[in-house]
Design a protein around this nucleic acid. Structure first.
Lengths: 201, 201
DNA sequence: GCCATAGCTGTCAGCCACTGACACAGGTGG
DNA sequence: CCACCTGTGTCAGTGGCTGACAGCTATGGC
């Protein structure tokens, strides 16, 4: 690793994140070339100069290399939603929260590699499944906040539907973006998707 | 198994379906009692009087015992949608198709056991994932038909969004139904869910 | 009645993802 | 110099899943 002697608190954290990023990079290349299922964990580990056991100390499951850390990003989206003005229509708040998430990915430079990752993702059943699990997790984090903003009765079912529909929009936007070669932005696809379902009331 | 000498054409098919049903029954009981992940395939097989290898000849994956045969039911839903009048709003056609599917389950008497199955399903991550994969399969079957009915441009993205939103409604309806103790019907939940997203145009 | 065939089954061996336990190397702080 | 903590490799084991082989049984032609 590097030998800079700057900050001190979470030096180990930094190293850990760097290793994770390196594994992700190597694994994504292998997946893109040979397909997710044809690449074994031991192959990834060998290419990264470690044992298979150590790989699993960084990623509990092989799928997590592609899907990422849903918990962490889910918290970001939840906080972004919570920071929205309380009198804003929930649909608009959800759109804004998702766009903040997309911007966050863009800042990290993950978008370039993200397109490769998304193409691997949408072409592998078990990865799609794992990704949809992530959406369910986000849903469980968002539904209470959305329900709290709804006025009338039946907030439980309505909040669930709204959140699931919004997540479906997010999924469609990402999937479409990954499958298209031009440089249409995710934000644009997201806005068009949301516009189609914007509720009347 | 039995010694009745009735019809002859697809006798093996009948036997095969019967065995599948029996495995499902036994496995669901075990899952409900001990949890999906604590029950091994070999345990199910032993309880059903067969080897683990034979279990996998009936169900390619352990999850398929709970999730069922998505391909088959997906074709039913697709055909139900195709049978709807071409001038009906797609949203209404989708609702009607899903209700036909729910009725089909009710006729087969699967609903009673279905509630047990759904509770196992929603409480296990890998099962939720597999079930969402099923939805994706249905989506791929429905999107072309929906797109063909849309008038304007941009039918690809719009059809995708409509179908995904409808499937989200179906998922919420089933999940809510499984988690509630009263005898609210799935159809009722489905109609309420659809009503919330019914597009203006 | 006899045999060929096809379908179902069990057994065995093996792959792969994943996990727990243990030992060893490295740097850190006393 | 000595604990100590962390990261790692190795080993062994579990569980899902698959391919190959062999035996058993029911079906169909003769």
């Amino acid at each position: 690793m590097s030998s800079t002697t700057s900050s001190g608190p979470s030096l180990r954290e930094i190293g850990r994140d760097a290793v994770r990023a390196r594994i992700t990079e190597i694994a994504l290349d292998l997946f893109a070339e040979h397909g997710f299922e044809k690449v074994t964990v031991d192959q990834i580990a060998a290419a990264a100069g470690m044992s298979g056991r150590t790989f699993h100390r960084y990623f509990p499951a092989k799928e997590d290399v592609v899907v990422g850390e849903p918990e962490q990003w889910g918290e970001f989206v939840r906080d972004a939603f919570a920071a929205r003005p309380a009198d804003e229509p929930v649909w608009d708040s959800l759109l804004a929260s998702f766009e903040a998430f997309v911007d966050l990915l863009a800042q990290n430079g993950r978008v370039q590699r993200g397109k490769v990752g998304m193409r691997v993702l949408v072409s592998t059943a078990s990865l799609r499944a794992r990704n949809l699990e992530k959406h369910q997790l986000w849903g469980r984090m968002l539904v209470p906040l959305v329900a709290a903003r709804l006025p009338d009765d039946d907030t439980a079912l309505r909040a669930e539907i709204i959140v699931q529909a919004a997540l479906a929009c997010l999924d469609v936007a990402f999937t479409t973006w990954a499958n298209v070669d031009d440089d249409t932005t995710i934000s644009e696809l997201l806005e068009r998707s949301f516009a189609m379902l914007r509720p009347t009331g």
